[in-house]
Design a protein around this nucleic acid. Structure first.
Lengths: 189, 189
DNA sequence: CGAGCCATGTAAAGAGTTACATGATTGC
DNA sequence: GCAATCATGTAACTCTTTACATGGCTCG
């Protein structure tokens, strides 16, 4: 549902571009919020052209097709950004695993959380590095990307702190006598 | 990829259950981290049975089929929880919109962020209410669910604070003279 | 006996991923 | 000429959503 709008939005902000061009941008800045594969992008551009939201404005070397937004496409993406409420629930397979900690051996859950803590810290550092790289330029085009980046910094820090907190919580738990809700459903249960 | 493990995990923690039973649990506690539809669950249980990860242990009234984990299923879900690294990137259509703020009229982006701030605050309150409802019981089975709940509390607060911060940032921006990276790609560009 | 819940399934369409397939151009 | 990069497309498969379809049981 949103690759459509991601493609329209990119065309709107960067001007006419080929599928290949858009793909570079996806793999660059946008990959963290909306990854897309080559296959998917080309298919989507075809559909958008059929729908009249984009049009081929020039054909270059090697069969290169340059797409540009139509007025309808611009209206569509503006509407989507400003007026369509963002999706509320997001799937989270990390948290899904947390729900099933009861199935693990003692220590495994804590190890899991410590790994998450470290991974979040590492990801936070990566984002910090990016932030420093773009900050000096104060690139005017990057303002909005910087808002997203700040979200990432806060998110990764939050997750790091949460993982630490959660790991500490587990320490304080009684060793979970396997009587009540133990991880023993086995076949005979 | 994970509905499979969500279903296996539920069967593992709650013991044998029908598709209908699992659906109630999905719509209850698990809906926030991994929503599933009725259709999807029944199909998935069928596939899991074919794969030998679950088996029908009894058939009740109204065609009710009760599924239980097999040893293979238990091994699979334990492996998934403890050893398969959680997915790194998560799509976020809210942040995708942020990248395209340049397309909006002045004020629209700030309004968007204020709405997000309010929505996050509201969601935070909902989670708080849930937390208070389960806290007094100190239900021993809910420990892990509480870790996830705390994640939600921290996440919603983080997002609320970020949205406020981001809205303030936009205020401080120069009114974006439509010279450089302006939102005017139009047809003639 | 009818409403509401219990309970299961299929079909179709929209997204996304992975793999395959092809060929032109540029620069060394 | 060969490698890297530019550039596009198709096919098969999986996952998710929405809608359709069916019927049994329970309680008032």
């Amino acid at each position: 549902m949103s690759l459509k709008h991601a493609a329209l939005g990119l065309l709107a902000t960067t001007g006419p571009a080929s599928g290949y061009d858009l793909l570079q941008i996806f793999d660059g800045s946008l990959a963290n919020v909306w990854p897309a594969t080559q296959s998917q992008l080309y298919t989507e551009l075809g559909k958008l052209a059929d729908a009249g939201l984009v049009e081929v404005v020039s054909e270059g070397a090697r069969g290169r097709k340059e797409y540009a937004l139509t007025d309808a496409g611009l209206a569509e993406v503006r509407h989507w950004v400003a007026e369509v409420p963002p999706a509320a629930v997001r799937r989270n397979d990390m948290l899904l695993r947390v729900f099933f900690f009861g199935l693990l051996e003692p220590g495994q859950a804590e190890r899991f959380l410590r790994e998450r803590e470290a991974a979040s810290a590492g990801y936070h550092d990566e984002l910090s590095a990016i932030a420093e790289r773009i900050a000096p330029e104060t690139a005017p085009r990057a303002v909005y990307g910087r808002l997203a980046l700040e979200w990432g910094l806060r998110y990764t820090r939050m997750q790091q702190e949460w993982a630490d907190w959660a790991a500490e919580q587990l320490k304080e738990l009684p060793p979970a006598a396997p009587s009540d809700a133990g991880p023993e459903p086995e076949s005979g249960a």
